[in-house]
Design a protein around this nucleic acid. Structure first.
Lengths: 206, 206, 206, 206
DNA sequence: TATGAATGAGCTTTCATTCAT
DNA sequence: TATGAATGAAAGCTCATTCAT
């Protein structure tokens, strides 16, 4: 029993191999079919693993979803913090938030983001409190940039900072719904256009 | 025994009473739990009806979802057609699309729209072809207004009309995700703010 | 209410029109799909009638099956009685039973017979006692002809009359399973061949 | 509580114990009630198993039916091949086909054959192609024996080999409908009688 | 005679999860 | 670490039948 060393299992794969394979399969299936419509069986079949392996790595299907979210939201939050750490006027900061934080990650995390946005509902669970906290922190960063712009006179006071921030986020986030379909443009290029419109739309008229 | 007229028993209720009751219950549950996570049993329990009655009115759960979508998309398309039928400059037309077509219906159809946007996935089915056609027609209307604005020199040529239209729609559509949560503002008020930002953001600088 | 005369209903059709239409549809569907797999809804749809009409004419789906059986078994029994009423030697009588009673009706009642043979199971019910009685009477007629042949020395005593009769009936009845598939031959022609084989097979050797 | 080893709980039963138990129960129920009229619930109750276990072993109720068929048709085909592999004149070969291939297996596979013959309808599915192929091969073996007899002058040319073969098969197969009911005779004894009648009926008169 | 909405039990199947090994 | 048979609750859906009209 003790003799059953690592190399005997799954052709000498690294221990976290299985974990990664399952995560990848789950992500692809969630994106295509939705979290609810994807069964654990499908995930393990797709990853050429077994249910036992799945439940060895996660206590539930939901726990895997949580892990999936965590990865990208950490990245996004980090990017956001980096942007507001820079010494930039609000217009430029908004532009960078749009391109580098809101749009750019879509290049890498398109699937995660699609799943995240689609599976909102499951985030109400207590287990997702941490993720919700991070998402809120991210939103607050956007709000704070708008607010600073309004306070310093760079942006017109059209609506509350919260309302404007929601518009900014929505404009960008929405693109996950059509990105692949119509896509000749990279997320960054889209972000630049949207940044232009938003900055100009918010600027104080001269 | 004598009191058993028209109330204890569901038989002989008003025509399509049952249909309406089921639609209402389904809508509320889909919004709260999602289409997939809502069972037919939950729907009929909520409506105080039976599964038999459900399947008497719809051939499947999906058919009900289709009916739910149809109602509001027809309304939205009609509103959009009305707006482009008016004799207005592109700026005003865009403003009206935003307030009257994109945001205003959220007052009435918040639930339907939430369901509609969340349940995209199920629209891939052939049975939803008509709904998809209408949604495309609607999108094309927004695109055409942006395009006219660019062609007539009212709007700057920032990005393609398609890209800009997607941004406009996204900015508004996204609001369904937070509308209730933060909501002191009416959809119309939100639309006015967003309209201002967008029109100003697209305007040719003077 | 009393004024709702016959011609107002179903385009002036004869009263038994509906009954006949339902019987025809049920027969065709039972043959194709089986009794169990055919729903009352399918029957009434196929006949362009309604469930109400169905249950007006029959108290149950099984009652209709009974009616379906009755029609053809009466015909078959009558034919059998006619044959044994003739003044013929056993060989000829057997030949006529095979061609005129066992095979010939397949030309007319192919569907009924297929259903009858396939839906045996449902005949165990008390409601089918009469049909079972008639089928037994029919079998006894075949047995009696074989027996007379053996008693008079026309047929060899190979096995009991019951056993031989079962073989005769089986040889013919089985043909319903392939009749349509391979069918260039009429039931009568098949019966003539089988009659030849059986009569020769049973004859006392010279 | 201590007694709960291997008997109160079904887990850890002998390998494929469950599979066999379910097959046996299904077979008995299908024979008695018919495939359609037998529910998966009845099967698992009868086998003291659960539905989950059922669907762990078969993907559908139909898949189980297929397994049930396969077992006996393989046996029958093997017997038929063995018979035509022997060096025998057509008369003897026909006699052996009747006794050893058509009738004898009824001793063992009465239930399977009853189900098989009754549930023809379900064999139209693509999944049953293999079974259909085997059944056809079996029929062709019978046809070929008749044909050889006719070609070599052992049998009279009464009807086509196909027609005669169908009669032979029918005469025997039909016996499943009454075998139990009247049964003092073994399938082999029945086969000997039928073999006599058929061989004599087909023989060229001397 | 006939309608058709409604019933309610039952259907086949799915699935997240458990657990002896 | 991992297996995979088994669980049991619940899913979507069907259907013979009833009944107020």
């Amino acid at each position: 029993m003790a003799a059953r060393t690592r190399s005997a299992s799954r052709r000498g794969a690294e221990p976290s191999d299985t974990r990664q394979a399952l995560l990848r399969s789950a992500l692809a299936l969630f994106e295509r079919l939705g979290y609810d419509a994807t069964s654990v069986q499908q995930i393990v079949d797709d990853a050429h693993r077994t249910k036992g392996a799945f439940y060895h790595h996660w206590e539930s299907k939901e726990a895997l979803l949580r892990d999936l979210h965590e990865e990208f939201i950490d990245d996004q939050l980090e990017r956001a913090r980096a942007v507001i750490g820079r010494d930039l006027p609000p217009e430029e900061m908004l532009r960078e938030l749009v391109t580098e934080v809101l749009m750019e990650p879509l290049s890498v995390y398109k699937s995660e983001i699609t799943v995240f946005l689609h599976e909102h509902r499951f985030l109400s669970d207590a287990a997702f409190a941490e993720i919700r906290r991070k998402r809120d922190e991210f939103e607050n960063i956007v709000v704070s940039v708008i607010k600073r712009g309004m306070d310093t006179g760079a942006f017109k006071k059209i609506g509350t900072p919260q309302l404007v921030a929601s518009g900014v986020i929505g404009m960008c986030a929405w693109s996950y719904t059509w990105l692949e379909a119509k896509g000749k443009l990279s997320p960054r290029e889209i972000g630049e256009t949207y940044g232009d419109i938003l900055v100009k739309g918010l600027a104080v008229s001269e």
